[in-house]
Amino acid sequence: MPPSTISPDSGPRRRVLLRLHTAAGLLPLLLLLLALSFGAAGDAAAAQRVLRGTVSHVTDGDSIWVRPARGGAARPVRLLGIDAPELCQRGGAAAREALARGVLGRPVLLHTRGRDAYQRVLAQVGTEGQPDVGAWLVAHGHAWAAARGPASRYAAQERQARAARRGVWARPGAIEPRAFRARYGSCR
């Protein structure tokens, strides 16, 4: 019986029916909240897709263009977890050349993690011979680990490159790309 047909003098029966009606009214809300939480998890899973393609262009030491294997236009991709020197910065051209030698014209596997502020796909990039190109670039001194501290994805590779004086670490005074951009702006 709907609540509107319950008479005020129904007593305990009215209270039971009102409780049932209130619970039934909350059920759609609870189902909606549950669906939204699964939807958010689904969006996170979708943001972490694996894509295949071929590198058609290397912009700089941490940005490439990938033509999807399934067809379509090439998409800009930013290597996740690294920050390579700007092209006009010491080590910038060498970083781009190292990345180009490793990936240009080759098939790659992208483990995507969303997009950056410039709408580039953020991804861990791998090739047949190098499952994590970002790790290789940092280990050879062509890029910094983007995150700081021991929890950084590539902190160990950066420590090894610094100790061995590879790439940007060959000479003292290397400036982190973000500090360089803050001081001098972008090279573009």
Rank of each mutant, 00 (worst) to 15 (best):
G71Q: 03
G102A: 15
R14N: 06
G134W: 04
D9T: 11
L27N: 05
D60K: 07
A44V: 12
H111P: 01
L32Q: 04
S56E: 10
T54F: 02
F38D: 11
V16Y: 03
R15E: 13
E97T: 14
P8Q: 10
Q124R: 15
L34I: 06
V58N: 01
P76M: 07
P12D: 11
A100I: 07
G81P: 02
G81T: 08
H21F: 14
D9N: 13
L31Q: 05
V103A: 04
A45S: 13
R78A: 10
A41S: 12
S10A: 15
V55Q: 02
Q119L: 13
E128K: 12
W65N: 00
L32S: 10
E128M: 09
Q89T: 11
P85E: 07
R67P: 01
L109T: 15
G114V: 08
E97N: 14
R113G: 12
R14I: 05
L137H: 05
V103G: 00
L33M: 13
V16L: 15
P107S: 12
R106A: 08
D116Q: 11
L34G: 15
L20C: 06
W136K: 06
A40E: 11
T54Q: 13
T22L: 15
R52H: 14
A45H: 10
L29H: 00
G71E: 02
G25I: 03
E86H: 09
R90G: 13
W65H: 07
S7K: 13
A73K: 11
L137K: 08
L32D: 03
T112K: 04
Y118P: 08
Q48R: 15
Q130F: 06
D132T: 10
G53R: 03
G71H: 04
A41E: 12
P131E: 11
G114W: 01
G102M: 11
V121K: 03
I82K: 08
A41N: 10
V58C: 05
S56A: 09
A41C: 03
P76I: 06
S37F: 07
